[in-house]
Amino acid sequence: MDIFIWLFDLTVCAVMVLLAAQSLMVKDLFWAIVSYILFGLSLALVWARLGAPDVALAEAAIGAGLTGALLLTTAAAISQVTEKH
């Protein structure tokens, strides 16, 4: 059982590093934001694994949910503005 938990932890860590790199490097703003939201969700998973469900809840709701919505609407507004000009 232990080995599975180790594998799970390692996978989450690797995925987080990949998602962080992707959200910084990818050219398309939309994909950068989607990677960021996925990063926030994996971070919530990490908090849950570390035994901090309170922080996990807050991270999922604010870090992934609300911030993601805010960034997506901002990106949409930016593309609207650039289309106009």
Binding site: D54, L57, A58, A61, I62, G65, L66, A69
Partner: peptide, 21 residues
Amino acid sequence: APGGAFQAGAILASAGVVLFM
């Protein structure tokens, strides 16, 4: 149990944001 004002407020806020969306 895990929970509280901040989490509750965040979920209430996301309901409001989703309504706008």
